[in-house]
Structure formats: structure tokens, C-alpha cells
């Protein structure tokens, strides 16, 4: 493992992958921002009062997030079986526990907000576009399509969550902000894995790009619809919602998969 404080980017490509896909790297990365939290919340963060309608809208949004995180948990665990090498398997195992933690902290937040049966509430408030996205993602995993499934999960879903959670954190109550900011830090790592894994494959197999474009063409409408539904619940004015959608599209574009 790299010396503490040394720059992993100075390592050779093979050594870099060995390092950043390891349990050791994950542990040191999360230790920095999770060690002083419980269920994603810093002890000094105080609850801010919410009106009944604000509380209800927040519950709906958190239920949407739980659907996305459950999809990510089930997909990342399923991907371990088809990962092409040990390093990818170990990285995905760290992602599995990250996704499980996201689900746990969101469920815990729902309980804070007075939801006694979170699982039923999630089922009741889930949107059709998110459920359709989840179904399609798990089909790609079941079909053992490594590139398409990694693209759908670590690029599309993670970029969506990254964009929406960041936007939400800016206006969220303090406790929800803590929870979302901790999640966003993990998403960066997951997007990095997807970008690196697919980037290397596209170099040697450029034809994969066309297949990924088809996957994106199929999933983008679902992503944009769920983005819009969540923003509506957050009270984002309709005029500003396309901006969030554009941020998501720009995030995917930056990764080179436009």
C-alpha cells in the first residue's frame, strides 16, 4: 500500500489500480469523513424545524433515494459475480457496503422524521420511472453484461445521484445535508471506478461505445423523468429543473460517454 500521504497518481498504472481498488484504500478514504458520524450525522448537527408539508415532501424524496440506493446495492452485489478480476471484485465489495450504508442512513433519517414502517412507505411513494430504471439495471446485471451494467450503474445512476444529492444538499435541513454530503463523497469514488474501468475497455474495444450509447439512449428518459419528479418534490421551480437535468447530462459528458 502507498505510504500515508503519498500521491496515488504517482504510481504505475497497475500499482494505481491495485491501490485504489483495495479494502485498505477504501478504509482510509471513508475513515476521514465517517469516523465522527453516526448514521451519517455529525453529533453537533441540530434538527431544524420543518412544516408538515416540508416534512412530507422530504419523506417522499428520501423514499425515492432509497429506491435508487436499493437498486445500487442489488446491482453492485450482483456485479461481483461477473467482475473480470480480483481487484474489480474487491472494489465492488467496498461499493456494496457503501450502498448498504446509504440505504441504512436514509432509512434512519426516515425514522427520525417519524416514519415507522419505511419499507412500506418506500413502496408507496416510489415513482414509475425509478422502478423502471431499477428493473432495467438489474436485467443488465442478470444478463451478465459487464460493460452495460457498469455503465448503467457507475456512470448513469451514480451521476444522477451525485447531481441530485449535491443540489439537494445546498437547500436541505442540516441533518439531511450531513447525510447527503457523506453519500456524495462515496459516489465520487464509484464514478471514478466506472470511468476508469470503461475508459480502459473503450481504448481496446471502441465498438463498445455504440452499445453504451444505446443503453444511455434507453435510460436517459427514465433518469431525466425521475430527476424532474424529485426536483418537483423539493420545491425547485419548473424553470430551474432543466438545469439539474443538464448538470446530469454534463456529468456524463465529462466522463466521455456522451
Amino acid at each position: 500500500m502507498a505510504e500515508s500521504g503519498s500521491d496515488v497518481h504517482s504510481l504505475s498504472p497497475d500499482r494505481f489500480l491495485e491501490e485504489v481498488h483495495s479494502f485498505e484504500f477504501w478504509f482510509h478514504a471513508v475513515e476521514g469523513y465517517l469516523s465522527a458520524t453516526r448514521f451519517g450525522r455529525r453529533p453537533q448537527t441540530q434538527e431544524a424545524p420543518l412544516s408538515e408539508s416540508e416534512r412530507d415532501r422530504l419523506i417522499t424524496v428520501l423514499c425515492h433515494y432509497c429506491v435508487g440506493e436499493t437498486a445500487a446495492l442489488e446491482a453492485s452485489s450482483g456485479l461481483i459475480a461477473i467482475a473480470p478480476n480480483r481487484l474489480a471484485k474487491v472494489f465492488l465489495a467496498t461499493q456494496v457496503v457503501d450502498e448498504g450504508r446509504h440505504l441504512e442512513v436514509l432509512l434512519h433519517r426516515l425514522q427520525d422524521l417519524g416514519v415507522t414502517e419505511p419499507e412500506q412507505e418506500i413502496e408507496r411513494r416510489a415513482t414509475g420511472s425509478l422502478l423502471a430504471f431499477k428493473r432495467r439495471l438489474l436485467e443488465l446485471v442478470e444478463g451478465r453484461d459487464w460493460e452495460a451494467a457498469i455503465f448503467a450503474q457507475n456512470v448513469i445512476l451514480e451521476s444522477l445521484e451525485f447531481t441530485v444529492f449535491q443540489a439537494h444538499a445546498e437547500t436541505a435541513d442540516p441533518v439531511t445535508r450531513d447525510v447527503l454530503q457523506g453519500i456524495v463523497k462515496d459516489e465520487r469514488r464509484h464514478i471514478g471506478f466506472g470511468e476508469n474501468e470503461l475508459g480502459r475497455r473503450l481504448k481496446v474495444s471502441p465498438h463498445v461505445r455504440a452499445r453504451l450509447a444505446a443503453v444511455r439512449h434507453e435510460l436517459d428518459p427514465l433518469v431525466l423523468a425521475s430527476c424532474d419528479e424529485t426536483m418537483a418534490q423539493l420545491g425547485t421551480p419548473p424553470a430551474e429543473r432543466p438545469e439539474i437535468g443538464r448538470s446530469y447530462l454534463a456529468a456524463v459528458h465529462r466522463l466521455g460517454f456522451a
Binding site: 479494502f23 436499493t70 446495492l73 442489488e74 452485489s77 461481483i80 471484485k89 474487491v90 465489495a93 467496498t94 456494496v96 457496503v97 450502498e99 448498504g100 450504508r101 440505504l103 441504512e104
Partner: peptide, 13 residues
């Protein structure tokens, strides 16, 4: 599912 997520990472470790 969440418990098994921790076991998955234990086994990977």
C-alpha cells in the same frame, strides 16, 4: 441485505 453488504466486504478483505 444490509448485513450481507458488510459480510461481502469482510470476505473481500
Amino acid at each position: 441485505k444490509r448485513y450481507l453488504a458488510t459480510q461481502t466486504l469482510d470476505e473481500a478483505r
